[in-house]
Amino acid sequence: MKKHAVVRTPSTPFNAALLEPGREREAARAIAERYRETQELSCGQARELSDWHLSFANAILHRDAGALRYLANGLNDVAKAVFSEVTGVALPQHRRDTWNTLREWAGISPAEEAVRIAQHRLEVERRAMQAKFENPAQAEAWVESQLDAGFTRISEQGREVFLVNEQGLGHNLSVKGSHLAKARPFIVAAVNLRQAQMQVEAERPQPTIDELFTMDA
């Protein structure tokens, strides 16, 4: 089990008034300095203010959870402590819980997180396609054309897997040695991403009648 570092924070509290609108540059400098000073106190060694400290500060000010994802790796207790002090948001110890807290703080919905995960999975399968096909771009284009044509579901029937449309019609991805079987991991990943994107779109607030008229004006 990892032993957590002893974090020593400055004796004076962080000035939360700096987070008010219009004071972004001043706030960024103050947060970066807070991070530097907390590091210095915690490790007992002098630290100079760096671009890393400023990047951390700007990520907080812009609620950029992606830029702060490293806070969930369990290796930077100082940064976690400073984040919590500045934002008032306590970060759990466990990686998944920490990331979920960061995601919620940044306003990233579960559906949007599902898109991020699906995009990563698709990129992994895209790289794997390079070794399976002489023309992987052509294979990928075919998959996209099928998704656009409404084949956006994966159906398992016994030991066979199919790419199907709403009527259940489609392509058998389980024929041994076929191009579709070789592309199946990529196809499944592409379908999962398309479904995740559709869910985000379905959850997006629809404009009111007044807003529609305003857009048409």
Rank of each mutant, 00 (worst) to 15 (best):
2 K>H: 14
3 K>N: 15
5 A>H: 11
6 V>N: 14
9 T>M: 15
10 P>S: 11
10 P>F: 00
12 T>D: 15
12 T>I: 14
14 F>D: 14
15 N>D: 15
16 A>T: 10
16 A>G: 07
17 A>N: 15
21 P>M: 13
21 P>E: 11
25 R>Y: 14
27 A>C: 10
27 A>I: 04
36 R>T: 13
38 T>G: 12
42 S>G: 09
42 S>Y: 09
43 C>V: 12
45 Q>K: 15
45 Q>I: 13
46 A>I: 07
47 R>F: 02
47 R>Y: 00
48 E>A: 13
48 E>V: 10
50 S>F: 09
51 D>V: 04
52 W>K: 15
52 W>T: 14
53 H>G: 01
54 L>R: 15
56 F>N: 08
57 A>Y: 04
58 N>C: 14
58 N>H: 14
58 N>I: 07
61 L>A: 12
62 H>K: 09
62 H>N: 06
66 G>R: 08
68 L>V: 04
69 R>H: 15
70 Y>W: 03
71 L>H: 04
73 N>Y: 02
74 G>V: 01
77 D>E: 10
79 A>T: 05
84 S>M: 08
84 S>Y: 07
87 T>K: 05
87 T>R: 02
91 L>F: 02
92 P>Q: 09
93 Q>F: 08
93 Q>P: 03
95 R>Y: 12
96 R>S: 06
98 T>G: 10
98 T>S: 12
99 W>Q: 13
99 W>L: 14
99 W>E: 02
102 L>V: 05
104 E>W: 04
104 E>R: 04
106 A>W: 02
113 E>I: 01
114 A>M: 01
114 A>Y: 01
114 A>K: 02
120 H>F: 12
120 H>C: 06
122 L>P: 06
123 E>N: 03
124 V>N: 04
127 R>P: 01
132 K>M: 11
133 F>M: 05
134 E>Q: 02
135 N>M: 08
136 P>L: 03
136 P>D: 07
137 A>D: 06
138 Q>R: 02
140 E>T: 06
143 V>P: 02
143 V>C: 05
146 Q>F: 02
147 L>F: 07
149 A>C: 00
149 A>I: 04
150 G>T: 05
154 I>H: 09
155 S>D: 15
156 E>Y: 13
161 V>L: 01
163 L>Y: 03
163 L>G: 09
164 V>D: 09
166 E>G: 05
167 Q>A: 10
167 Q>E: 11
170 G>Y: 07
171 H>D: 13
172 N>C: 10
172 N>W: 00
172 N>Q: 07
174 S>K: 01
176 K>T: 12
178 S>D: 10
178 S>T: 08
181 A>Q: 08
183 A>I: 05
184 R>D: 00
185 P>W: 09
186 F>H: 06
186 F>A: 00
186 F>T: 03
189 A>F: 02
189 A>C: 04
189 A>N: 02
190 A>R: 07
192 N>I: 07
194 R>V: 04
194 R>E: 13
194 R>I: 01
195 Q>G: 07
197 Q>V: 00
198 M>I: 11
198 M>D: 05
199 Q>W: 01
199 Q>D: 08
199 Q>R: 02
200 V>T: 01
201 E>H: 15
203 E>H: 00
203 E>A: 01
207 P>I: 09
208 T>N: 12
208 T>C: 10
210 D>A: 14
212 L>F: 00
214 T>Q: 09
215 M>C: 13
216 D>Y: 11
217 A>F: 11
